[in-house]
């Protein structure tokens, strides 16, 4: 037994623990900010490098100059993607939590209905849901004589929030079911109603279980936002296409798309690393 760990012994300054390479989990050694950065730089050098060298010989502007010039527009359009993803996530999360709670309802009718809705949206292709939303929802709705405009990107937000809702519903169902039944029983013995138990005891405990998959879902959703360009929303993919045709440079296609990829990578990578960290912190220790 390590005497240093026993309470009541004289405090002794233990030798500083050396951080061994083997102490770091393998996935952290392979996938961290440094390796990601190195990967990104390698990407840029291999893809943009050759065209850069060619461009220097030609009198035309270099690829890097062009990318640099378009950066403000790309940043703006990318911000739009982020906005779409955040809004879809917010709507989907709220609806999904509700649907998830309904999935564990004691009434079998409600439970079954919630299950059907969840399965329907969880197993439909995102693009198909998007198409439906774009086609079914009118561009403006007349409510009580007031016309509320419904631009394409709002429809896209709704379209993307449907699968998010379904995934979230499944996460919630799993999380609620994973809470030990003793929690329910003790709440009942203290006179809590079912609603109170759910709101004050069960749901708060599900947060840490749902958080990592929720963040993963967000990263996936962000990477899915270019889908909305297909339904005519002017986000970063549409802008890239417009930029490519405005420049009419044949050698620009690959570097430009790679540049967009980098934007998504830099945005999503920290999210997935943070998720990994949270997952390890909250992992069930037996």
């Amino acid at each position: 037994m390590n005497p240093g760990r026993i309470k009541g012994h004289l405090p002794v300054l233990l030798p500083a623990r050396k951080l061994m390479l083997s102490d770091i989990p393998l996935h952290d050694r392979l996938f961290n900010v440094w390796t990601a950065g190195a990967l990104l730089i390698a990407f840029l050098v291999t893809a943009i490098g050759p065209s850069f060298a060619q461009a220097e010989a030609a009198p035309a502007r270099s690829i890097l100059t062009i990318l640099f010039e378009w950066t403000p527009s790309i940043a703006k359009a990318f911000g739009f993607n982020v906005l779409i993803s955040i809004m879809a996530m917010a709507i989907g999360t709220v609806l999904g939590v509700g649907l998830g709670v309904l999935q564990v309802s004691p009434r079998s009718m409600i439970r079954r209905l919630a299950w059907i809705v969840t399965q329907f949206f969880r197993n439909s292709p995102w693009l198909v849901l998007l198409f439906y939303c774009i086609l079914l929802i009118p561009f403006k709705i007349t409510l009580f004589g007031m016309s509320v405009p419904f631009p394409g990107w709002i429809k896209a937000v709704i379209g993307l929030s449907l699968p998010v809702m379904a995934y979230m519903s499944e996460y919630m169902r799993g999380a609620i079911n994973s809470i030990p039944s003793g929690q329910w029983e003790s709440a009942q013995s203290l006179g809590f109603t079912r609603f109170q138990t759910m709101r004050d005891i069960i749901l708060p405990q599900t947060i840490k279980r749902v958080l990592p998959p929720w963040m993963n879902l967000y990263a996936v959703l962000t990477m899915a936002t270019p889908l909305v360009s297909i339904v005519g929303v002017n986000e970063v993919m549409s802008l890239t296409r417009a930029a490519l045709s405005a420049e009419s440079r044949v050698d620009l296609l690959i570097p430009m798309y790679l540049y967009i990829l980098c934007w998504f990578f830099l945005y999503c990578y920290p999210i997935s690393t943070l998720t990994g960290r949270l997952e390890r912190r909250y992992s069930v220790k037996l």
Partner: peptide
């Protein structure tokens, strides 16, 4: 159109 230079296209300033 925003992808049909020079009939309709996007300039660098957006």
């Amino acid at each position: 159109k925003q992808d049909y230079k020079p009939w309709g296209y996007l300039t660098v300033d957006g």
